[in-house]
Amino acid sequence: MRPLPDFLPAEHDPRDPSPWLALYLDRSTPLPDSVKAAWLKDCSSRSRQFVLPLLRPLARGLIVLFQLLKILLPRSFNRPYLLHRLLVWGLKTWVSPEANLLILRHFHAGSVILRFIGNNAGVGPIDTVPLRPQALDDLKDLAFLQHDLNLYNFIIELNQRLDAQGRTLTKPEHLDFSMVGDDDQFPVEAMPNRWSNFLDLQSAIELFTPIYQLLMTDNDFWRATNSLQLDETIGIYAATLLGMPERLVLINNKHPLVLMSTLRAGYRLVLHGLATEMLHGVLVTSKRQHLAGASTRCSTTG
């Protein structure tokens, strides 16, 4: 039996079962134990239980207020470098180690997923800016903005090349897993863990979303919000290449062609992060199965 994280009960009480223990022990999703433990510890925190319900209506009210302000002054608050430095300060000062770890992992996992699709699509290399931050300070160089640009540019260039070749995306005869690590870990430094680092992931995102809106142009904010609609798109690409359409059930952030209000951007950003971890977990599992199958074939042939 695998060891349980410290925040989980040591024993199961049938009269008072722990929902977090049930989710941790469940293996229906491809999340590795370390990621699942960080995710569930964050979800079960007092911050998410007590701070999030108070913070969410305030944050959404600010989104409405800032939207009205942007109508009157559409480009007066475009300060992307200030935004990223402010976000990094907030992450280092107030956000929990588990939430910060998940945020840094998101950039690594997203880069792996795009490279996997690009390498296996048969259209040649697709250039995006690699995002592999090892520390929170690495996010200062416009990492959040570049993350959205990478996604849009990748989809546009991929489909332009497929159109030029007169074909659609199909499963290749041989899959390239060279960009996928042999395990689920990324080279990430230890996160700040002071008394002030208590804020959970969803509360942090709800708080930072109106700040992002205020210090970016209205066009940048809407583009970032609408990029969340593309989770299913990326999932379809990966599932097509893997020949595993059933895995799409793990990716759910609404239909790509039905754009949603920016008021729910914080919640949907959390779904985006989880969808990315799920898809990366699928790739790691598929690589292990691929290597095991190749090893079996070699043994049989030999």
Rank of each mutant, 00 (worst) to 15 (best):
L162P: 04
T128D: 11
H12A: 15
H108M: 04
N253V: 12
V123S: 11
L136I: 11
L263Y: 02
D141F: 06
L136T: 04
H290F: 14
R48H: 02
P19V: 13
Y24L: 05
N253I: 10
A239E: 00
P256F: 12
L207I: 11
S76A: 10
W195H: 09
D220Q: 10
R161M: 10
L131G: 03
T128R: 15
S18N: 10
L158M: 06
L291P: 04
R194D: 12
K70D: 01
F208K: 02
L257P: 00
N219P: 00
R27K: 14
D13M: 09
A109R: 12
T128A: 06
L279Y: 01
S295K: 11
R167S: 12
E98S: 08
F116L: 13
A275C: 12
M244H: 06
Q289E: 13
Q202V: 00
L73V: 07
L201F: 11
D218A: 15
L228Q: 12
R247G: 00
A143E: 04
L291Y: 01
Q213M: 14
T276A: 10
D138I: 08
L69W: 04
T170G: 00
V112I: 14
T29S: 13
P17G: 14
L283F: 12
N100H: 05
L8E: 09
R115N: 11
L62W: 09
R75G: 07
I113T: 15
D127A: 15
I156S: 14
C43W: 00
E277A: 14
R75F: 12
L86R: 03
K36N: 02
N119A: 06
P187R: 07
D182L: 03
A275S: 14
W20G: 00
F7I: 04
V180K: 00
S96L: 03
N100L: 00
K36I: 02
D137I: 06
L291N: 10
A224Y: 07
L207W: 15
Q165C: 11
L40G: 03
A99P: 12
R56Y: 02
F154N: 09
A143Q: 06
I117W: 02
L8Y: 05
D231S: 04
R268W: 07
D26H: 11
H174I: 15
A238D: 01
L149I: 15
W89N: 11
G281E: 10
V258F: 09
L201H: 08
L52Y: 06
